[in-house]
Design a protein around this nucleic acid. Structure first.
Length: 465
RNA sequence: GUGGGCGUAGCUCAGUUGGUUAGAGCGUCAGGUUGUGGUUCUGAAGGUCGCCGGUUCGAAACCGGUCGUCCACCCCA
């Protein structure tokens, strides 16, 4: 017999894990609503044409394509006989793709949202603030903190160029991570600043190459990055000017003033810097509860569609991968042939937030597992009386349940213990006669006799608060 | 797409230069305990050593292939 398995990079979620995920989702959703975002959902798969050309070369490769259902190869093989196909790369994946696939799993939530906005633009009241919590799929090779199926929690605003949206989104990040008690650093940069730098470096339209090398600065070290840029044709003189700009541990103001001096003659650069300055100043005046804002001139972000401010969230400790990211994309709907729908948005990476929370042991059991009180089953007569009490407790929103069978008490306690139950209720002959309920706290073994259901409910509510 | 590590019980892993019948801890199940769990004691079940081929008198071990998995790069949440 064949052993069953699941595709690599996917996971089953068991009760304890899923409760923790729901806890995170509930908090994120709550703050989305408080900030005035409205929920939408889009299909798990889109027409392939909606997704292609939006994510850059790397991203394109990682889109999961869905095979057509028909017998499409039959057609292809007929064509194969023709001479012109034999000489071409007809059977290369690229050439074959339109023949075998026209749909794909969504790669992120932003592009489907842009598609949604275009299709519903006559019904939408702009500026439109939407949130979306759904899985996305990437045909990446899995590793630590990287899955092929994972959840994104996105909040985006479409229809406003106001920088107050950016300020608000930073506040949103701060609110969520403050409630989660997860210390984070939000790194901020601006796409136009990078473009301006590339222009100054004299490599104009090849700025992605420059950005890519810049992005490696932290990973491979300043010297190697320097060397790589030289090889890519960036003048030594320019590099020497740039170097001090990427100084570690310098504050926002330091960076802004240094860049301003360098880019005085660049309109793009000056504009980007004034936008960054606005974000920085307003965020400071409003105040951030916990999240720390850092300027990072090396932050690039690979997705093609960003045009303005970009940001990335990292856990303050044990930071190896981002747990959120976002930015402004003023031209995204343009690729669908509709202009003037500027957008800006952020994403929370649920799975990575989960990992960071787990590492720092920030999941509190009482907040996450609202486990029911288990009533022991002593027999038919006691079970009926237990069910009466359970019904009353449930009406008070106290989770409770009856063990379904009258097996020996130690077996029932064993079950409760494994399940993680906080309280077991014993209602046997003794208790029925005395009109009481005996509560056993499994954490410490202490037993308390209750004759008032309201008091019992109140104490339990306190316990799982 | 590129590079590396690891596949032995449900889980984590031992297994000597290749040598008879493959082990431990945890977990599971049964019992000591039919109104007291989590501790403890006794016992039991559980394996085509990932798969295919090769070397050998003999392979869990060595070689080749293959599949799976984890990690790193690229990129990203």
């Amino acid at each position: 017999m064949q052993r069953p398995s699941i595709p690599k990079g996917t996971r089953d979620f068991s009760p304890q894990e899923l409760r923790r995920r729901y806890y995170l989702m509930d908090i994120i959703r709550k703050h989305f609503e408080i900030f005035g975002f409205a929920p939408i959902e889009t299909p798990c798969f889109e027409n392939l044409s909606v997704l292609t050309g939006k994510y850059g070369q790397e991203g394109e490769r990682l889109i999961f394509k869905i095979l057509k259902s028909g017998d499409f190869m039959k057609n292809s093989l007929e064509h194969f006989d023709e001479e012109k196909h034999i000489t071409s790369d007809y059977f290369s994946t690229r050439a074959l793709l339109p023949e075998i696939s026209e749909k794909a799993l969504r790669y992120d939530l932003t592009v489907p949202f842009a598609r949604y906005v275009i299709m519903h633009r006559n019904d939408i009241n702009f500026p439109f603030k939407r949130y979306q919590i759904q899985p996305v799929w990437r045909a990446d090779r899995p590793q630590k903190g990287r899955f092929r199926e994972f959840y994104q929690c996105d909040a985006d605003v479409v229809g406003s160029r106001s920088l107050w949206q950016e300020v608000e989104l930073l506040q949103l990040y701060d609110s969520v991570f403050t409630e989660l008690r997860l210390p984070v650093v939000i790194q901020i940069n601006h796409r136009e600043l990078l473009v301006a730098l590339a222009e100054m470096a004299g490599i104009g339209q090849h700025w992605p190459i420059f950005i890519n090398a810049l992005d490696k600065w932290d990973k491979i070290g300043a010297e190697k990055a320097h060397q790589e840029m030289l090889e890519k044709g960036i003048p030594e003189k320019v590099l020497n000017e740039l170097k001090p700009l990427f100084k570690e541990n310098a504050d926002f103001d330091y960076h802004l003033s240094k860049f301003s001096q360098l880019l005085v003659s660049s309109e793009k650069g000056t504009n980007a810097l004034s936008e960054l300055n606005f974000l920085w100043k307003k965020s400071r005046e409003l105040g951030m509860q916990n999240a720390k804002l850092r300027f990072n001139g090396k932050l690039a972000r690979g997705l093609d569609y960003y045009t303005g401010t970009i940001c990335e969230v990292l856990p303050e400790v044990g930071a190896s991968y981002s747990i959120g990211g976002g930015g402004r994309y003023d031209e995204l709907t343009g690729v669908f042939g509709v202009k003037n729908f500027p957008g800006v948005g952020i994403s929370f990476g649920l799975d990575r937030i989960y990992l960071a929370m787990e590492t720092l042991e920030l999941f509190e059991r009482g907040k996450i597992e609202k486990l029911p009180i288990l009533f022991v089953n002593f027999g038919q007569r006691e079970a009926l009386q237990s069910m009466r009490e359970i019904k009353a407790l449930r009406k008070k929103n106290i989770p409770s349940e009856l063990y379904p069978e009258a097996i020996p008490l130690n077996k029932q306690l064993q079950y409760a213990n494994k399940k993680g139950t906080y309280w077991v209720a014993l209602m046997g002959e003794r208790e029925i006669n005395e009109k009481t309920i005996l509560i056993k706290n499994l954490a410490n073994g202490i037993q308390t006799s209750y004759n008032d259901l309201d008091q019992l409910a109140k104490d339990y509510r306190e316990l799982i608060k």
